[in-house]
Amino acid sequence: MKRWLPSPLVAGILLLLWLLLHQSMDPATFLLGALLAIGVPMLTRPFFHPIGFPRIKKPMLLCRLLFVAGMEIVRSAFNVGRIILFARPAGLNSQFIRIPLDLRNPYGLALLSCLINMTPGTVWVEIEPEKYELVLHVFDLHDEQWWIDTIKAEYEKPLIDIFE
C-alpha cells in the first residue's frame, strides 16, 4: 500500500482540492484528479524527510502561533507600505541581523522560515548550521534587540513546544 500510496492523507487532500478547483465531479475530472493524487506523492517521496511526518504536540498552540503570525503579517504590510510611500530613502536603515536559535527540528525551522518570509520587510537569508544562527534581513531596522526577542519569544519558543 505504501509503495503506491505513500501518503493517503496528502493524496486525499490533492484529490479534494482538484475537484474543488474544477467544480465538477464528472468521470474525466475525477480520474485525472485521482492520477495526480497518486502520482504527486509518489514523485515527491524522495523529498520527504527521513524522520517522517511531523508530530504536532500542541495543535492549539500552533493555531495561536498562526494567528499571531497572521496579525504580524498584516501589521507589517501596512508599515512597509507606509515606508515605501512616504519615507525618504535616506532615512531607511536596512540591515542584516543574527539571531541565535535553539530550535533544531527541521519542520519547526521550515515553518519559522515560512512565517518570516511571509512577513513583509523581513527575509530569512540563511542559517549557519555550525552555530544555528539565523541571518535575517530587515527592511527598516530600528531596534535589533526587539527583533531578537520577538523571534525567540513569539516564534521560536512556541515552535519548540509544538515540534520538540
Rank of each mutant, 00 (worst) to 15 (best):
F30P: 00
R55C: 03
D143M: 01
V80L: 10
E164W: 03
S7C: 14
H142Q: 14
R64H: 08
H49M: 12
H22F: 08
F96C: 03
R75P: 01
E128N: 13
E72D: 15
I51D: 07
L85P: 07
D140G: 10
D26F: 00
E126Y: 03
P27W: 00
P50Q: 05
F67S: 15
F163A: 09
L136K: 09
R3F: 07
G39F: 08
A34S: 15
W147H: 13
L21W: 12
V80P: 07
P106S: 07
F47K: 04
F139P: 11
L92P: 06
L14A: 08
G91C: 04
L32Y: 12
L115N: 04
I99H: 00
A11R: 01
L101K: 06
T119W: 02
Y132R: 12
Q145S: 11
L35D: 03
L21Q: 10
P89K: 15
P8I: 06
G33F: 04
L62P: 02
P100C: 05
K58E: 12
F86N: 05
I151K: 04
R55L: 11
P100F: 03
T29W: 02
T44L: 15
L62N: 11
D161P: 00
P89I: 11
P89T: 14
K152E: 12
E72L: 08
L16Q: 06
K2F: 05
